[in-house]
Amino acid sequence: MHTITAHQPMLNDEAATGDALAGKTLSATVSAAMDGELYGSALNQLIRACKPDSRAEDDWRSYHIIGDALRQTSVRSTELSERIRLLVADEPTVLAPQRKRSISKFIMPVAASVAAICLVSWSALNIPSSSTHTAVMAAMPLQIAKLDPARLNNFIAAHRDFSPGASSPFMDADYQVPARPAR
């Protein structure tokens, strides 16, 4: 069986024969198409194959979501992505006015940095605006680095049974269960 993986560019039109688009490899072919690795008749054949197959369409969508995930697209962008796409599509490409471009060039990195600082930094404690102020102020900042990561991860995993969310919001560690075969 001829299989195509996402990382195996199809350079030859002839390589995309019928069995390349058979059920098992359809997902892989969709993936290859997304990466721009399908050409000519192979691509046409895939598009024809996709028309009646809603699973292939779902794959296409899922892979894009996964792609976005890998590129760390932020929370806000899913909310906006469609509108942004439409706005950008409507906007003619302006090549001449230097000044506007330089302003946006300056503003966006600053905005991005501010956003990054807001989102990523260990936040200056989120202080609510009431009498609780003093209690929060009185508590000293905790050095996360001082916490035992395994212990903290276990706590978070236990918390996640009651409050779904990120497996490990405080660090990049995998969700793990100790291997202690009972039998």
Binding site: L119, W122, S123, L125, A139, M140, P141, L142, Q143, F170
Partner: peptide, 9 residues
Amino acid sequence: LPRGLSSHG
């Protein structure tokens, strides 16, 4: 012993 307060997101 860790003690104190932290927040992330």
